[in-house]
């Protein structure tokens, strides 16, 4: 029936094989230049507006069906909690995908509150580090993960530059990593803002397209330069993120890591990882060839003289 000759079939499959082999190499090499999906959503956190009411924590708890907290969400005493001999404030856990911490910067007459959650990086280090591909960066900008795929290796916890993924240490059977998913399933995939944004009484959180939020952030800084720092944290940090912050005091005084590079974490290993498929595919064949060439004559030396030495020249 088909008129595909044996020769054509072989040529076709060879071409297809080469293309399939080259495609992933190209993708890996190009990924370092990714600057987010064009219509990706994000949240602009204006720390000059946050009043520290912790409503976002309460809304997150309800939306994600998390276990009851140890203290009520309107209890201010949590702001005094410190960990590791006072060096660390509260961080995200398996029971709380977002937390608000209080800071007292020296140049501010009143405390500044900072909400912590997954920043949903453009090029997430957690995603890059995950060897079972549990993580996905969606078109809407959310970094989500598949609990059923996660093997609980915690590599993403090491990889995350913002220390966000938490671990379900309480679960004896099948513990997995837990983190903010931008309310992807229930809200953001349907075009609605995440629960924390919706409840925020001061509209410290602004939901919108990342590219529009960047413009709004710059406009706010420009119209009130005395009120804001010039930087937008998350515009470039580790390749940029969907969640970005503007503040009235320097970011390092609010617990932000300002030593992070602007390059995505994957760029540290991109060159090497891009080489791996090439090395794995070409080197065995290449060195087998070398080996055969190098041992060609030696091989025949071991043969007895009953053969006429046809390999010798």
């Amino acid at each position: 029936m088909s008129k595909v000759s044996r020769r054509k079939f072989l040529a076709g499959s060879l071409a297809g094989g080469v293309a399939a082999m080259l495609a992933p190499v190209k993708k890996v090499l190009a990924s370092g230049d990714f600057r987010g999906f064009p219509d990706g959503m994000g949240v602009l956190v204006d720390l000059t507006r946050c009043v520290g009411c912790r409503s976002c924590e309460a809304a997150c708890n309800k939306e994600q069906g998390l276990p009851a907290p140890d203290l009520p969400f309107d209890d201010d005493s949590v702001f005094d909690e410190t960990f590791h001999h006072g060096t660390q404030k509260r961080r995200t856990t398996e029971k709380a995908y977002t937390v608000v911490n209080r800071y007292e910067p020296k140049d501010s007459d009143q405390p500044v509150y900072r909400k912590v959650q997954c920043n949903h990086c453009n090029e997430p280090a957690c995603l890059t580090s995950c060897f079972v591909k549990a993580y996905t960066k969606t078109n809407e900008g959310a970094v989500i993960y598949d609990e059923h795929v996660c093997v609980g290796c915690r590599t993403c916890m090491v990889a995350c530059p913002h220390n966000i993924p938490a671990y379900a240490y309480s679960k004896v059977i099948d513990p997995v990593v837990k983190k903010c998913i931008f309310c992807y399933d229930t809200r953001v995939s349907k075009g609605r803002p995440p629960a924390c944004v919706e409840i925020c009484p001061a509209e410290a959180l602004t939901f919108g397209k990342r590219k529009d939020l960047l413009r709004l952030a710059r406009a706010r800084i420009k119209s009130s330069p005395e009120k804001y720092q010039q930087e937008i944290y998350g515009e470039h940090t580790v390749g940029g993120s969907a969640w970005m912050y503007i503040a009235g005091v320097p970011f390092e005084e609010l617990g932000f890591d300002t030593t992070l590079p602007n390059e995505p974490i994957i760029n540290n290993v991109k060159g090497f990882l891009g080489m791996v498929p090439m090395v794995l595919a070409i080197w065995p064949a290449l060195f087998t060839g070398f080996h055969l060439l190098a041992t060609k004559n030696k091989d025949h030396d071991h043969h007895d003289d009953s053969h006429t030495g046809e390999g010798e020249k």
């Binding site: 708890n61 140890d70 969400f73 309107d74 909690e81 006072g86």
Partner: peptide, 18 residues
């Protein structure tokens, strides 16, 4: 929503501050 008032969690062994 806030787990406060009559929905407040049982006072547990939770030790604040440090």
């Amino acid at each position: 929503l806030y787990h406060s008032g009559k929905y407040a969690p049982e006072p547990s062994t939770h030790s604040a501050a440090e």
